[in-house]
């Protein structure tokens, strides 16, 4: 059996962790223009065999009673429950650091739908696919981020992610604390 030098793959993993990105949701800046939703639909259309493509990002709009516009997409969990529960192995964290899905192999058992704590995996019954945001890792910038004018969606590497996320939360807390 060939032995692959593990220190090399380990090094690569550490390097990719340094450069991989994550998408920050800065809800307080969201204007619910739905550009990201449209961009997402186009980007994922080729993965839908028989169904109309549905966006893998959705926005809960502010209502008259209050609240804020809240974009929802895959949060790319660390010990992702959807990977844990996937029986085919079609959902797996790839080298980009994103939890991605091989829809050719998804059989639609909805185990991941049953375990996603954020409810961002949708069951597409006709195509037997459990669709979720796969990070568009083949794009330099994910289409939803590219079209977001108010910069409510931003791409950041691990280095600045935590700090920016704190800021995003504090901005949102301020908005939601307003009356109305």
């Amino acid at each position: 059996m060939t032995s692959v030098p593990l220190h090399v793959s380990g090094m690569l993993n550490e390097m990719s962790a340094q450069y991989t990105r994550d998408i920050i949701v800065d809800a307080a800046k969201c204007t619910a223009c739905m550009d990201c939703v449209e961009a997402c639909k186009q980007a994922v259309a080729h993965e839908h065999k028989t169904t109309e493509p549905t966006a893998r990002i959705s926005i809960r709009k502010a209502t008259a009673e209050g609240g804020i516009n809240l974009p929802q997409l895959c949060k790319n969990c660390a010990e992702a429950p959807c990977v844990v529960a996937c029986m085919t192995g079609c959902r797996i964290r790839d080298v980009s650091g994103w939890v991605t899905t091989d829809y050719e192999r998804c059989v639609g058992c909805w185990m991941c739908v049953m375990t996603c704590p954020f409810g961002v995996i949708g069951a597409v019954h006709e195509d037997k696919m459990a669709r979720k945001c796969d990070g568009c890792t083949s794009h330099e910038v994910p289409p939803c981020v590219a079209v977001c004018k108010p910069q409510a969606l931003r791409v950041r590497s691990y280095g600045s992610f935590a700090q920016e996320r704190r800021q995003a939360y504090s901005r949102r807390a301020r908005v939601t604390a307003l009356p109305g």
Partner: peptide
């Protein structure tokens, strides 16, 4: 209707 079953699970 199995919407957000995962939220319930958690």
């Amino acid at each position: 209707d199995v919407a957000h079953g995962g939220v319930l699970t958690w």
